[in-house]
Design a protein around this nucleic acid. Structure first.
Length: 839
RNA sequence: GCCGGAGUGGCGGAAUUGGCAGACGCACCAGACUCAAAAUCUGGCGAGGCUCACCCCUCGUGCCGGUUCGAGUCCGGCCUCCGGCACCA
């Protein structure tokens, strides 16, 4: 008999096993031919220096998957790194008055320690840091590849400016009309010399290839689709009255072309100024344009409700009828989309209708619904659906959908217009006027213009000393040693580009670097990328559904086109985990935050790991519950007691006993409880295995709780002489520890070693279930009368249904309801139920 | 407005292909152990009715309707909540 059972001392057990795993280098991964590879990736975090349980959920989900797949025989790569550049680090550093590099370093150390305390299987030999020169050297290389391919260009743009952060914001960094970080309303500014990546050139492929991503959540694919915002239409020209030039418009509703009653221009449209110059409209229109610019910057929401505009005193001519069409400037047309000018058809566009009513402009119906007629003078809702053409010259009576094609053909044939596809997606503005980012490897020479830094001169190092307080110009511009250089092309004195890149560039390629984190001469080695990539499973928050994932897909396609990699989509499967709420708030924002240390101090990290999985379906949001944590701790306590208190009954050779026929314990000879427990064990193996494969990690825990709840009382019944019973119990315990080990690895490894097991369960093969043992030999048949459950029948699984029917009919509970009535129909579903329809 | 997702006990949530609604956990109640409490263990726990311990009956998965022997699950129409996009022409 073993010594007196020990208590579950997680304070001792957890560090002990973490040390053993680290010493043995258990989680280090290399390329190998004998196993299938699996690249599991967590989205790498900003090193904020403080993990809470909301973040932890992401990493535990990943760890369970990685551990499980390793036990299943996969060569699993499970790396971690740091998205270390960027505003959060810089702002935190400014607040605390320390250098961003120092702050980042200490944050990384803290978080790494937190990860290790969670028992996560990261391969730290692959750790990467986006702010380290050996990494950002290759981010600069990436920039140069895009530059050479004509995909990186400089342009002037009207940009969203945050006066608090003193920087340009990408559209992606906005929340409504405010800065997503500090919620200051943005201003619109003209900014020259900004760098862009030409992602719109890839819009079509980024959209089309979404269809390949069948292992991505529908939700995310839809969000990307919306973001790209493809729309098909026609763009055509209208001759300006009294001038030689034209006004170009884009429309998706060319079928309403005969319904145009005015033209609407964006306030910033260049033609506005031209048309009013020297006219009586000049002053008032200029004033109006200034008002619109102000409103657009501060209060886009309100502007959206109230439509305003002003006549420019100019006309253009309808390309088909030659009618004079008044040109208006408005606050509801966007310069950035289409041509910045719209053909207004009030009868068939709600916005145009509202505008027309406001300024008493004519409304002309050109499409009528089949069963009613529209009154242009009183209608308040524009008619948007298809119908029959009216007031449209020789086309009257044609279906509007058909007319759409007919008129597009005619406009193309006459050279007036052409079919065109427009996207909402804009080119990707990557310039940031900030210090803590990757310098853009460009030298500006007065003679040569923009000159890319030669690749052999990379990295362009970020100077350590800089006044990084934001002022609007890049802090790097105030570091003469950095700015002043010589032109790589002609050797004359030149200046460096002083903007840095947005961190989304850093994170758009990091998954490639994990394959070759130590590569010195190349960003990654071809053979290693070919082996590991694409990422098999990528898990992170849905907040990255659009920007990070779209940029990564774009960069992957660019690198594919340039011949650096051989795949076009970086992430085969995507899983977005839900957020953890506490007291009704996201754990990340105001309100209470639970740090992993609080849980591990009180209950152990295994308890925290178990709870964060058990809390709910991984893809859904969940509410934190201190009580729920206690429940999971009780579960682990029961597991501990089950194994530790019954060590004396454990038979390491249970397999031989159960399968070798010793002591009359062959499966066939097992009876009653023994048989039932074996069945439960094998059913649990099956359930847990399926649940992990389908990311049902909450029900996976439930299944193991059920098994534990059956094994505990069973253990109390098994006597020392009952070899068969001991073998059945041992198999149950053996299976439970293996199945539970990805979730609660420390307690399982400890109990495993106490049973005499070798090493870590991480190195053990995953259990397999025997379907014959898992199969129930008796089943419960539900007996219904008129679809109401009246009784149940316990029968052998292989009993023919005719026989089951007879038994069912004879049941007293059934007889009562059938008596005196005629059985009209019998529905018998094998293995499930018998339904007697009587009346 | 458009698109996507979700509505199940007091709570979080279970429920292959339509087939025993409420697994597992929390909370709660009762009992055991204890001088007592905590911990632990055992049992109970959707609502209503009745010939109220037991049995039995009716109702019950946001609402209304449909298909079906049978609907949480499928179809149609609504309501509510969450998320994304939003004068995108």
């Amino acid at each position: 008999m073993p010594d007196k059972p020990d208590k579950y001392d997680f304070h001792a057990i957890e560090p002990k096993w973490q040390r053993i795993w680290a010493e043995r280098g258990l989680f280090r991964t290399t390329m190998r031919a004998d196993k299938p590879k699996f690249y599991y990736l967590d989205m790498f975090p900003y090193p904020s220096g403080d993990l809470h349980m909301g973040h932890v959920r992401n990493y535990i989900i990943g760890d369970v998957i990685a551990r499980h797949l390793h036990m299943r025989g996969f060569n699993v790569m499970h790396p971690m790194g740091w998205d270390a550049f960027g505003l959060p680090a810089e702002n935190a550093a400014i607040e605390r008055g320390i250098h961003p590099a120092d702050w980042t370093r200490s944050s990384v150390a803290k978080m790494k320690q937190q990860f290790d305390a969670l028992g996560i299987t990261y391969d730290w030999s692959r750790e990467i840091n986006a702010a380290a020169p050996d990494y950002y050297k290759w981010t600069q290389w990436l920039f140069l590849q895009l530059y050479k391919a004509g995909l990186a260009y400089r342009g002037e743009a009207s940009v969203n400016w945050c006066s608090s952060c003193n920087t340009v914001l990408a559209r992606e960094e906005l929340e409504g009309a405010a800065c997503e970080r500090c919620h200051t309303p943005v201003e619109i500014r003209r900014a020259p010399g900004q760098w862009f990546f030409a992602i719109t050139k890839y819009a079509e492929r980024l959209l089309a290839d979404l269809a390949l991503l069948d292992k991505w959540p529908e939700r995310v694919r839809v969000m990307q689709e919306n973001w790209i915002g493809r729309s098909e239409g026609v763009s055509f020209r209208l001759r300006l009255e009294g001038r030689e030039d034209y006004l170009e418009v884009f429309t998706t509703r060319i079928d309403t072309i005969y319904g145009i009653t005015f033209m609407a221009l964006a306030a910033e449209h260049p033609l506005v100024e031209e048309l009013i110059a020297g006219t009586e409209y000049e002053q008032p229109v200029r004033e109006f344009v200034r008002q619109v610019a102000l409103e657009a910057a501060t209060d886009r929401e309100a502007a959206a409700t109230e439509k305003k505009g002003m006549f420019l005193g100019a006309y253009c001519l309808h390309p088909l009828t030659g009618e004079r069409i008044p040109i208006w400037v408005t606050n509801y047309v966007l310069l950035e989309y289409g041509t910045g000018a719209v053909m207004a058809v009030p009868a068939h566009d709600q916005r145009d209708l509202e505008f027309a009513r406001e300024y008493e402009l004519p409304v002309k119906v050109v499409i009528t619904p089949p069963d009613q007629s529209l009154d242009p003078d009183t209608m308040t809702q524009a008619y948007l659906d298809p119908g029959l053409m009216v007031n449209s010259g020789e086309y009257d009576g044609l279906g509007s959908e058909e007319f759409k094609q007919v008129i597009a053909d005619r406009l193309e044939a006459e050279g007036i217009g052409r079919r065109e596809v427009n996207y909402r997606l804009h080119d990707w503005l990557i310039s940031r006027q900030r210090y803590w980012g990757c310098p853009i490897p460009i030298v500006i020479c007065e003679r040569c213009g923009d000159v890319p830094v030669p690749e052999d001169q990379l990295p362009v190092l970020l100077p350590e000393k800089a006044d990084y307080t934001p002022t609007g110009e890049s802090p790097l511009a105030r570091v003469p040693e950095f700015v002043n250089t010589t032109c790589p092309a002609c050797g004359s004195p030149a200046r460096r580009e002083t903007d840095t890149m947005t961190t989304f560039v850093d994170s758009s390629w990091y998954y490639l670097r994990y394959a070759s984190p130590d590569a010195v001469d190349v960003p990654f080695r071809r053979e290693e990328v070919a082996y590991w990539l694409p990422v098999d499973k990528y898990v992170g928050g849905v907040e990255h559904a659009v920007r990070h994932l779209l940029y990564s897909r774009f960069i992957t396609k660019v690198l594919y086109d340039l011949g650096h990699i051989s795949f076009q989509e970086p992430f085969t499967e995507l899983f977005t985990q839900g957020m953890i709420y506490i007291d009704g708030h996201k754990m990340s924002k105001r309100g209470r935050v639970v740090r992993p240390e609080e849980i591990s101090d009180k209950y152990g990290t295994d308890t925290g790991r178990t709870f964060i999985l058990f809390v709910g379906p991984p893809d859904q949001d969940a509410e934190w519950s201190d009580r729920g944590v206690e429940g999971c701790h009780r579960f682990l306590q029961r597991v501990w007691r089950l194994v530790e208190e019954n060590r004396g009954l454990y038979l390491a050779e249970w397999r031989e006993v159960l399968h070798g026929g010793t002591a009359g314990a062959t499966p066939a000879a097992l009876e009653g409880t023994h048989r039932a427990i074996r069945r439960k064990t094998h059913q649990t193996i099956q359930t847990v295995t399926d649940d992990i494969a389908n990311m049902r990690l909450n029900t996976m825990i439930s299944a193991m709780m059920e098994l534990t709840n059956e094994l505990l009382p069973f253990a109390g019944e098994v006597g020392a002489e009952d070899t068969a019973g001991r073998a059945v119990l041992s198999e149950g315990i053996w299976a439970l520890l293996h199945l539970l080990s990805p979730t609660a690895p420390h307690i399982c490894d400890e109990l495993w070693s106490r049973l005499g097991g070798e090493g870590s369960l991480y190195e053990q093969p995953w259990p397999e279930h025997d379907p014959a043992i898992a199969a129930a030999e008796t089943i419960t048949i539900v007996v219904q009368v008129n679809s109401k459950v009246r009784d149940r029948l316990e029968v052998p699984a292989d009993m023919p249904m005719e026989q089951v029917q007879e038994l069912a009919l004879a049941l007293p509970g059934v007889q009562k309801h059938v008596e005196g009535k005629q059985v009209r129909k019998v529905v018998a579903v094998p293995g499930k139920l018998v339904n007697l329809v009587v009346g």
